[in-house]
Write a protein that binds this DNA or RNA. Structure first.
Lengths: 129, 129
DNA sequence: GTGGGGGTTCCAGTGACAGGAAGGTCAAGA
DNA sequence: TCTTGACCTTCCTGTCACTGGAACCCCCAC
């Protein structure tokens, strides 16, 4: 399979797939013409990576998870730890964003949004007073 | 005022302040020795920028907002539009993160987290079957 | 004069790719 | 046989908003 087919099958851009090879997440073979040749195993890994990335895991997390995935003797506790740490980070981000949203939506509601210059949003950013 | 005092007063790292000058958000004066000399006006702008960034506005948004802030003839509708667009993006991000959190917390809960290799998290990432 | 705590510039790195240039390869059609 | 066009290759640059660090200058107190 060439990279285009793999891109179609995995939903990942070819650029991303090349990048993943670059950083040693996958190691496709090469044909005589220099084209990458992907095995089912590679496609499987890429799907794994795509799903992990979709859950927001960093590339380094993905590397760890992939290693655990391929290690038959792993302890599920190790996997769970990675996932839980990530979950904690996501929750922190959500909390941050919720705070921003609350502040911002108050300000947006308070703003008349007409042609006059008076604006509570700018007042707030400028330090109210 | 030198950059260190400004950093203390605004809570922004000196590096960030230099960067903001670099990209023309502020234009402090210069002393004969080459040191930046900040006026109250500059500090005020930096505080504005700090608050806007804390609300998650991009630098380009900040540039726009700052221009509106300094334009006495602005229409509050223009400010509101910028804020509302940003709010929409924040809400989209929150939705994404909530989806990740839900999936992830289900998986974390389902994982025994012991020394055995069986792990629903990896099963899910690997495509379950 | 020396030490330390300011300040300056410039360059590289971050994360996870995306865009684009310049060129090689391959199968199909005229 | 030639050409077209789709595909592939590598390599370099840019993204965003900084951060870290090197190498150097400036100023004041001791």
């Amino acid at each position: 399979m060439n990279i285009g087919d793999v891109a179609t099958r995995t939903g990942l851009p070819a650029k991303t797939i090349r990048y993943y090879e670059d950083i040693n997440l996958i190691k496709p073979l090469r044909d005589d013409n220099g084209y990458r040749r992907f095995r089912e195993k590679d496609v499987h890994k890429l799907n794994f990576l795509g799903r992990a990335r979709a859950l927001g895991f960093t590339i380094e997390d993905c590397r760890t998870l992939l290693a655990l995935y391929e290690d038959e003797t792993r302890a599920s506790a190790d996997v769970k730890q990675v996932a839980r740490d990530h979950l904690t980070q996501i929750e922190a981000k959500i909390a941050d964003l919720n705070a921003m949203r609350d502040t911002l939506s108050h300000l947006v509601d308070a703003c008349a949004g007409d042609d006059r210059p008076d604006c509570p949003i700018l007042q707030d950013l400028g330090g109210k007073s």
